[in-house]
């Protein structure tokens, strides 16, 4: 699954990302873990690769999305844009 998700990331994103990540730290996300169904769309689309699916399941039995590298978040809102269930709030400074 991670392999499939990896393919979603455009090489250009990765290149830009390095530059952004080195200088700025400006984003944060809140993820409603109980609402999340673990589809992985946000994980795959996050240009900063800050998200991953949790090891533990939520109450509905899904491995939910969680931010594993919060320091890398750029607050672009892509995760919230692709989230089908509207679980993500995204902030940027």
């Amino acid at each position: 699954m991670n392999q499939t998700i990896g393919k979603c990331i455009h090489p250009l994103h990765k290149a830009l990302l390095g530059a952004v990540r080195a200088t700025v730290r400006c984003g944060a996300v809140d993820i409603d873990a109980e609402r999340c169904k673990g589809c992985g769309l946000c994980v795959g689309w996050c240009p900063a690769q800050t998200l991953a699916l949790s090891a533990e399941a939520n109450l509905r039995g899904y491995r939910h999305s969680t931010q594993v590298r919060p320091r890398d978040c750029i607050g672009c809102g892509t995760c919230a844009t692709v989230c089908p269930d509207g679980c993500i709030t995204c902030y940027r400074k």
């Binding site: 984003g27 609402r35 992985g40 919060p70 607050g75 709030t89 902030y91 400074k93």
Partner: peptide, 30 residues
Amino acid sequence: TSTDTIRREGRVVHRRTPLLTDAHMHYCPG
């Protein structure tokens, strides 16, 4: 900046619209 500061002082890029109810959608993941 710390992520808490960003939440507090930053602007909201995207938030769940209040027009979506609290009901858990029955759709398959994704």
